[in-house]
């Protein structure tokens, strides 16, 4: 049986998925209501393994709600969400073992160094202690300068904390990575470095779902972009097929159309 998500994506003019069995993330008919507000109105979304998907949308579109459902922090009212084949509503703890998560604000323990934070957070989720060499590799891959590894995090910038967050996600060796506004509040240099790290992860086959407002960074790193408005996926775009300004135009047109906002 072909999931409804595929027909939705196709009807939106997106590139179809050739190998559904390799889907790392599957959201089918996902609904969530907070009081009178319908955060998700039957969201269908499939992210193939090894791809990077950017979920764009205005505030209140349902991006963070989608991530929270995938993380098992919120129960959906209806629909199915699977991570690497595991139903997150039925087995949230098991599903979480397949996810690495980088929040908008990576908060670390300020009295520990970057390396100690990595060591601590990695050990939280693992019964085996990782070798110092492996953890140092993760920090290196995440792009944190070696001179900062043993400095206390209290003196880190947001970008540096974000890099430690990526290193923690890398050390977790999870097949799926969820990112919530990863470039928010980063200066251009830090955002560029972050994108490089994410591209490197994508090359290693990590599946990524990224909720963001940052169209241009999303276009640089994502293999597919979805525009989410009013809790429903309105359009999917292949970033390789559109230029930056065109992406912005299409995004704004879609948002205005759904929300009924005048240009």
């Amino acid at each position: 049986m072909i999931p409804a998500a595929v027909s939705v994506c196709r009807s939106a003019g997106a590139v179809g998925f050739e190998d559904l069995s390799a889907a790392a993330l599957e959201l089918i008919g996902l609904r969530k209501r907070f009081g009178d507000h319908e955060a998700l109105a039957g969201l269908d979304l499939v992210v193939p393994a090894g791809s990077c998907y950017a979920l764009l949308g205005p505030n209140g579109a349902g991006k963070t709600t989608t991530l929270n459902i995938l993380l098992g922090f919120i129960q959906a009212d209806a629909g199915t969400a699977r991570v690497d084949g595991v139903d997150v509503q039925a087995e949230p703890a098991r599903a979480r073992t397949r996810i690495a998560y980088i929040p908008e604000q990576v908060q670390l323990y300020p009295r520990l160094s970057g390396f100690e934070n990595l060591e601590y957070f990695h050990a939280l989720g693992s019964s085996e202690a990782a070798s110092a060499g492996l953890l140092r590799d993760c920090l290196q891959q995440a792009g944190l300068a070696e001179a900062d590894w043993d400095r206390r995090v209290a003196g880190y910038s947001k970008g540096m904390r974000q890099k430690v967050g990526i290193a923690i996600a890398l050390a977790r060796r999870a097949p799926v990575m969820l990112l919530d506004e990863p470039t928010s509040g980063l200066d251009p240099q830090a955002a560029w470095e972050l994108n490089n790290s994410l591209r490197s992860l994508a090359e290693q086959g990590v599946t990524m779902l990224m909720a963001t407002h940052d169209l241009f960074r999303a276009r640089e790193v994502a293999s597919r972009i979805g525009i989410l408005v009013n809790g429903r996926l309105q359009q999917e775009i292949d970033p390789a097929q559109v230029a930056g300004p065109e992406l912005e135009t299409r995004y704004l047109q879609e948002v205005r159309r759904v929300l009924g906002v005048e240009a």
């Binding site: 929270n68 993380l71 703890a93 979480r96 998560y101 604000q105 989720g125």
Partner: peptide, 24 residues
């Protein structure tokens, strides 16, 4: 402190269990 800093989802994700982390 972790809740105020918005750190709990991140911690729970890492540890796999809020209760065990809290006890720890």
């Amino acid at each position: 402190r972790e809740r105020e800093a918005g750190m709990l989802p991140w911690v729970v994700m890492q540890s796999g269990g809020f209760g065990s982390w809290l006890m720890g």
